[in-house]
Computed example of a mutant assay.
Amino acid sequence: MLKSTPKKTDQPRHLLTVKEVAELDHCSEKTVRRAIAVGLLEAVRVGPGGRLLRIDPAAHAAYRQAHRW
């Protein structure tokens, strides 16, 4: 009996850049980096040496919900 391999239907997640989050929140990139540094906004490091920061849209939504101004 042959088993079929599951088709990969998951699309790669689109992660936001620091610049995109800053534009969405109408603030500076430095403000976004500060929020990440103090743990208010969850981010992941990607790229060579983990140099680049990316933010999951769900984490950004949670941050905006928790820190409405």
Score class of each variant (00 low, 15 high):
residue 65 Q to W: 01
residue 63 Y to R: 03
residue 2 L to S: 14
residue 58 A to S: 14
residue 22 A to L: 03
residue 53 L to G: 08
residue 46 V to N: 07
residue 59 A to Q: 08
residue 15 L to S: 11
residue 14 H to N: 13
residue 46 V to R: 11
residue 3 K to H: 05
residue 30 K to S: 04
residue 31 T to G: 04
residue 53 L to E: 09
residue 2 L to G: 13
residue 15 L to E: 08
residue 23 E to H: 02
residue 10 D to V: 14
residue 37 A to N: 02
residue 44 V to L: 09
residue 9 T to P: 07
residue 47 G to M: 06
residue 7 K to W: 04
residue 28 S to H: 03
residue 49 G to K: 03
residue 45 R to I: 10
residue 34 R to L: 04
residue 50 G to K: 10
residue 61 A to G: 06
residue 58 A to I: 15
residue 60 H to T: 11
residue 30 K to G: 00
residue 41 L to G: 00
residue 59 A to L: 07
residue 33 R to T: 03
residue 38 V to Y: 03
residue 45 R to T: 15
residue 41 L to N: 02
residue 16 L to N: 14
residue 40 L to K: 14
residue 50 G to T: 06
residue 47 G to C: 05
residue 43 A to R: 07
residue 48 P to I: 10
residue 59 A to K: 11
residue 54 R to G: 07
residue 67 H to N: 11
residue 69 W to Q: 09
residue 54 R to Y: 03
residue 24 L to R: 04
residue 12 P to G: 07
residue 65 Q to T: 10
residue 4 S to T: 12
residue 69 W to C: 12
residue 32 V to L: 00
residue 2 L to K: 12
residue 59 A to S: 09
residue 2 L to A: 12
residue 27 C to L: 01
residue 61 A to I: 05
residue 55 I to T: 01
residue 46 V to T: 15
residue 36 I to T: 01
residue 47 G to Y: 03
residue 26 H to A: 07
residue 66 A to W: 04
residue 30 K to A: 03
residue 69 W to S: 15
residue 33 R to V: 04
residue 54 R to M: 13
residue 38 V to P: 00
residue 8 K to P: 04
residue 35 A to F: 02
residue 53 L to H: 14
residue 17 T to P: 04
residue 48 P to G: 12
residue 20 E to G: 09
residue 30 K to Y: 03
residue 47 G to P: 01
residue 66 A to N: 10
residue 42 E to H: 10
residue 38 V to A: 03
residue 53 L to W: 11
residue 43 A to V: 09
residue 56 D to F: 01
residue 41 L to Y: 01
residue 43 A to H: 07
residue 60 H to S: 07
residue 48 P to L: 11
residue 46 V to K: 10
residue 37 A to F: 00
residue 59 A to E: 06
residue 8 K to F: 10
residue 28 S to A: 08
residue 10 D to A: 15
residue 50 G to V: 05
residue 48 P to M: 13
residue 36 I to C: 01
residue 68 R to V: 05
residue 17 T to W: 02
residue 69 W to D: 14
residue 37 A to R: 12
residue 58 A to N: 09
residue 3 K to Q: 13
residue 60 H to I: 06
residue 51 R to K: 10
residue 6 P to L: 13
residue 66 A to E: 09
residue 15 L to G: 07
residue 6 P to H: 09
residue 32 V to K: 01
residue 59 A to Y: 10
